[in-house]
Amino acid sequence: MVLNQIGPLPTLDLVDLGVPVTRDRPREYAVLQRALDVHQGLCVGDARFTAEPETLTTTDAQDMRRMCLTCPVAVPCGTYAAAALPSAGMWAGTQYPLEESENA
């Protein structure tokens, strides 16, 4: 197994990545954190994913959504975001904060 050859992956913490979090959702957070311990999210290192939505171009948003479609942590990322309702960022292809109609 390749993981055994390269050693353990470094643990990433969402707070260390500068991810804005507004609600405490320990169960969903723990699942996402475990996924990030094994797989690196495709958004890691890409500042667009934590940028304010008005700073993104249409092309940026489309590229980011495409990245999310193939990301190995998309499911736990989306589950966490749906529960925590982050104050900003693109999570599993969805831009937060949600519009009022999406948040109802």
Rank of each mutant, 00 (worst) to 15 (best):
G18T: 06
C77Y: 00
I6Y: 06
R65Q: 11
Y96R: 04
G45C: 07
Q33A: 13
D37E: 12
Y29R: 08
R23H: 13
R48D: 07
R65F: 06
T22I: 13
D16I: 02
Y80E: 00
T94R: 08
T11I: 10
G18I: 06
E100H: 10
N4A: 14
A61N: 08
Q5A: 08
R25P: 00
E100V: 13
G41I: 03
A84Q: 03
M90G: 03
V75G: 06
L69A: 13
P76W: 00
L36S: 02
R66M: 10
P97N: 08
P53L: 12
T57I: 03
C68F: 00
L42E: 05
L42V: 12
A88Y: 03
T59G: 10
P20A: 04
G41W: 01
A74W: 02
V73Y: 04
T58W: 06
R23Q: 14
P53H: 08
A74F: 02
G18V: 05
P20G: 06
L56T: 00
T55A: 11
A92D: 02
T94F: 05
M1I: 12
R65D: 06
R27E: 10
L85Q: 13
V38K: 08
G41K: 00
L56Q: 05
T55Y: 05
L12V: 11
C71R: 01
T55H: 07
L3N: 12
Q33S: 13
V19E: 01
M67Q: 12
M90C: 05
P20M: 03
C71Y: 00
E28T: 05
P8E: 12
R34Q: 14
A82D: 09
V38N: 07
V2F: 09
R65M: 06
L9T: 12
V44A: 08
D13E: 15
T70V: 11
C71V: 01
D63Y: 06
P86T: 02
Y80I: 01
R23W: 06
M1S: 13
P72H: 04
P86D: 01
G7K: 03
E28G: 07
V73P: 00
M64H: 02
S87D: 12
F49W: 09
G45K: 07
A84G: 02
L3Q: 13
P26A: 11
Q62F: 05
E54L: 10
C68Q: 01
P26N: 09
L56I: 03
E54Y: 09
D63I: 04
L98H: 09
C71A: 03
L98I: 07
D60R: 01
R66D: 14
V15Y: 15
R23L: 15
L14N: 02
V2S: 12
D24C: 06
E99W: 15
W91F: 07
G7H: 05
E100Y: 15
T57P: 05
T57V: 04
D16N: 05
M64L: 14
L98G: 00
R25F: 03
M1P: 10
P8Y: 11
A84T: 03
Y96A: 01
C43N: 04
N4H: 11
Y96F: 14
L85E: 04
